[in-house]
Design a protein around this nucleic acid. Structure first.
Length: 879
RNA sequence: GCGGACGUGGUGGAAUCGGUAGACACAAGGGACUUAAAAUCCCUCGAUCCUAGAUCGUGCGGGUUCGAGUCCCGCCGUCCGCACCA
């Protein structure tokens, strides 16, 4: 019986909220989680993606940080020097929007939010080294970013060029593609214009091949993310081919058309040339053709929405020009302006291989152009093969292709490439979908780009000694546009080169720049330089990075680029080009949605749910009206299916929130937040608390000597606990927190059963096993529920800090059973099981199995055809 | 359209190497304790056959194997990513 301890004494409930504060204070006072600077110790760098300081943490943060914290605490207990820092991704638009609404400075709003969120994070009891905290909006951080920029500029990794951008004419700013919705600005709703602007770029394409190839070495990244990055980089090998043009007066530089293709093997199947409506040749021709101008305008109007692109018919405009085939001066094909050719890829011009590309086939059929198959499938004949309505993109032999006839596709490509290169009409080319990274933003709340524009000297870098270029404080947001553009005293500056009056660059950096190297800064957050090479060499790479899948491409690719650029500029040591050794992308927190009878979304706390048998009936607390329970979705402000971490932490405690976040769902999948699940977690906390009290009553004293011999019951308990110890460790290392949680439940069940088996005081060996079990159990829950674990550790009589204790070692002898249970199958169906000594020989096992009644019955006196014995697992008798 | 992941009880999920499917938890039902409730404890809980025992059972259909949730082939469904990339 569980409460057979001190007479009539029911253990008081564990007051999580009160004790959690106490332990957080203790950890802080003792600076328990400060990363050590003994570089001879093995290190472990655990990092969760740092948050944007919106002002409040949400459940997604709780899940993310709970996972990282388990790993960090576990690794610390395993003897690693752990770096587990936290900071703030603090630049960006929301602060400016808030500034406009509240008439405050973006910094005021941001720093207030940071304070509020920091308090919340601290209430989670995370094992963070707050000594290394920084915010990217602080000049102590961004001045180093400016230094990185200057060094990258010096190496040609940052440059200026003119490019097309999405321009919001109301907000006076450039918008990212994802901020344009159906051709309109996401905030202003204004029709977005395409503008040609001179912007700053990082030369990420310089590393395209390396970024692609090195993905193969990232074995501890989800393959999904690696695939996404590979697709994003989009390497394709092909050729640039020049086609001389005829048929109109053309400018000297446009006497031929250069196209990019990956199917130069099909060059004898060419039936037309197609250029983008934005191609310079199209622009040139449009000057003398109203019809073409009208066509180009129409193409631009089709817009960028997915739907429009999907439905858009292939359309073209015959320019009247012809292009001359590189292998036959007599062969001429028409040149079209076509709506499906993208200016941003290759050269903005293609040749139409009608039989072997679906788009080209659609186009050729629409305009009645020649469709000549030149790659012939094995079972077809080149004179009769007809592709019909589906382009043939499979393997085959070349046909209808003169000197290429009979070749395989690969050989034909090689032959064409060699001949064209020799003739100077083409060259091999590797093309990438990846573009250089445009980092200019017409925004105030970002890192100033440390450049100066001088009428005489052009673009001049701010001398490193004059850094930082600080953001001016006295700005207003009452007018649209960038306040830096109208801040004269900041703007006007002498040219560092010639001393004449010049202007500062007023664009600031994309906030993705801030997050592309913060992990490196954490390795020496107080360094006078951007990084400290010795510290970086020790701490980098991040051993485990944890965050959302939404950053699978941009943030992670930019960071990989920055690591390379920082090596190039001497800010990171060689060998650290991959900043994140292991990556884990956690799932979202999802919740039911609730809608009131009159169609308003309701917060979970505004709804009362009654369980009536299988039925769940919801009513609105405020007025008793019925509420419709909707589908389970990602927590979002718009659906109001939000649970505030503060409510949970002040109600149930941080340990409870952490435990629930780690249980049940595998960490990479979505987890459903339910009230009953939290209540279950809370019950378990109280159960641990009671069990530890029971153990103090029933178990051995802290100083009791280990008995030489254990009875069966005690041995069984020790086996379960040591197995749990072994497996929980393995599962934490593998980030299988839900499985680790299940094993802890099992361990607790084993302890509880052992306790329940005694009415009176247990025997000495059992008493000792109970205390051992209690101590191990408490140490195992430590990484997940650190406050409860400290409290129980204290109860067990220790005056040390559990967070500083080493992880216990499992006794190897207890991990293997002497007696094993083996399933016995007949013809693959389980008929019985056999309990036998682990050391029993296969023959003994077989003999024992054949004597089992169900086996004898099934064999009906006949000899078995075959008996398969898998040691310690299974016996299969084939009848 | 292309690429990828996934599909197991009422629910979340476990089964790490092809070897006893459903661990653990949630929900539900029954019981004990209690004046009562809360809390706690005990029992049941994939389906079918009244029961014992058996049969079926990991989206569907095939296959490999002594043995398949796991491997192979073909479907169906769900989710995610990319999307006129030449």
């Amino acid at each position: 019986m569980i409460s057979s301890g001190a007479p009539g004494m029911a253990t008081e409930r564990y007051n999580a909220v009160d004790r959690e504060k106490h332990w957080q204070k203790t950890w802080t006072e003792r600076d328990v989680f400060r990363a050590g600077d003994d570089y001879s110790k093995p290190k472990c760098y655990v990092l969760e993606m740092f948050p944007y300081p919106s002002g409040r943490i949400h459940m997604g943060h709780v899940r993310n940080y709970a996972m990282g914290d388990v790993l960090a605490r576990y690794k610390r207990a395993k003897g690693f020097n752990v770096l587990h820092p936290m900071g703030w991704d603090a630049f960006g638009m929301p602060a400016e929007n808030a500034a406009m609404e509240n008439k405050t400075h973006p910094g005021t709003w941001t720093y207030a939010n940071i304070e509020a969120m920091k308090t919340q994070l601290k209430s989670m009891g995370l094992s963070l080294d707050w000594n290394r905290e920084f915010a990217t909006c602080n000049v102590d951080y961004y001045q180093h970013q400016q230094k990185l920029f200057l060094d990258m500029y010096a190496k040609g990794l940052a440059y200026r060029k003119s490019s097309k951008v999405n321009w919001d004419p109301v907000d006076h700013t450039v918008l990212a593609n994802e901020q344009v919705i159906d051709g309109r600005g996401w905030r202003s709703g204004a029709l977005v214009e395409q503008r040609e602007l001179t912007q700053w770029f990082f030369k990420i394409t310089e590393y395209a091949d390396d970024l692609l190839e090195a993905l193969q070495g990232l074995e501890d990244w989800p393959s999904k993310v690696r695939t996404m990055q590979a697709n994003w980089i989009g390497r394709s090998e092909g050729m640039l081919i020049n086609w001389p043009l005829e048929g109109a007066k053309l400018p000297d530089e446009q006497q031929s058309l250069e196209i990019f293709t990956t199917r130069h093997d099909t060059i004898f199947g060419a039936s037309f040339m197609a250029i983008s409506p934005e191609h310079p040749l199209a622009t040139h021709l449009a000057r003398s053709s109203e019809d073409l101008t009208a066509f180009i305008t129409e193409c631009q109007r089709i817009g960028t929405s997915l739907e429009a692109v999907e439905k858009a018919e292939k359309k073209g405009f015959d320019t009247g020009l012809v292009a001359v085939h590189p292998f036959d001066p007599e062969w001429k094909v028409p040149v079209y302006v076509a709506n499906f050719v993208l200016m941003g890829y290759g050269t903005g011009a293609v040749f139409g291989s009608a039989a072997h590309d679906q788009r080209d086939l659609d186009f050729a059929q629409k305009y009645g152009l020649k469709i000549l198959p030149v790659v012939i499938p094995e079972d077809q004949d080149s004179t009769t093969f007809d592709v019909g309505r589906e382009a043939y993109i499979g393997p085959g032999k070349l046909g209808n292709s003169r000197f290429l006839d009979g070749m395989a596709v690969k050989d034909a490509m090689e032959d064409v490439a060699r001949r064209l290169e020799k003739a100077g009409q083409g060259k091999r080319q590797v093309n990438y979908r990846l573009r250089d990274w445009g980092l200019s933003r017409q925004r105030y709340w970002g890192c100033p780009i440390p450049m100066i524009h001088c009428d005489d000297c052009g673009v001049v870098p701010v001398p490193a000694a004059e850094l930082p270029v600080k953001l001016p404080e006295d700005v207003t947001f009452d007018k649209p546009g960038n306040p830096l553009d109208r801040h004269d005293s900041w703007l006007k500056v002498d040219c560092p080169s010639c001393g004449k009056a010049a202007r500062r660059e007023t664009d600031t950096m994309d906030t993705f720049v801030d997050s592309s190297w913060y992990f490196a800064r954490f390795s020496a957050s107080d360094s006078a330089e951007p990084t400290d090479l010795e510290a970086a060499a020790y701490w980098m790479p991040v051993d485990q990075y944890i965050g959302g899948i939404e950053h699978a491409i941009l943030h992670l690719l930019y960071s990989r680029f920055f690591a390379r650029a920082m090596i190039e500029t001497g800010h990171l040591p060689q060998g650290t080009k991959e900043p994140f050794k292991a990556l884990f992308t956690q799932g979202m927190v999802i919740h039911e949605t609730y809608k009131s009878s009159d169609g308003r979304w309701l917060l979970p706390v505004e709804v009362d749910i009654k369980e009536a048998g299988e039925q769940r009936v919801a009513t609105e607390l405020a007025n008793g009206q019925p509420v419709t329970i909707g589908p389970i979705e990602k927590m979002s402000k718009s659906r109001k299916n939000l649970v505030d971490p503060d409510d949970i932490i002040t109600g149930y405690g941080a340990d409870c929130a952490r435990w629930f976040m780690l249980s049940d769902s595998p960490p990479e999948r979505d987890v459903i937040w339910t009230e009953s699940g939290v209540a279950g977690a809370s019950r378990f906390i109280q159960r641990i608390w009671r069990l530890v009290h029971e153990i103090i009553d029933q178990g051995a004293a802290q100083s009791a000597a280990k008995p030489a011999i254990f009875s069966d019951g005690a041995l069984e308990l020790r086996r379960s606990v040591h197995k749990a110890l072994h497996q929980v460790g393995q599962n934490i290392e593998g980030l299988r927190f839900n499985v680790a949680v299940a094993q802890l439940y099992e361990a607790a069940n084993a302890v509880q059963s052992a306790l329940a088996a005694y009415d009176k005081k247990p025997t000495d060996d059992m008493a000792w096993a109970l205390r051992e079990a209690g101590e191990i159990m408490v140490q195992l829950i430590g990484p997940m529920m650190p406050h409860l674990a400290e409290e129980c550790w204290l109860l067990l009589g220790y005056h040390s800090i559990l967070a500083e204790q080493p992880w216990p070692d499992a006794e190897a002898a207890l991990l293997v059973d002497d007696i094993v249970t083996i399933a016995v199958q007949v013809n693959g169906k389980r008929r019985d099981e056999l309990t036998i000594a682990r050391s029993a020989s296969n023959d003994d096992v077989q003999a024992a199995a054949l004597q089992l009644e169900p086996v004898v019955k099934a064999l009906a006196g006949k000899a078995p055809k075959k008996v398969i014995v898998v040691p310690q697992r299974i016996v299969n008798v084939v009848a």
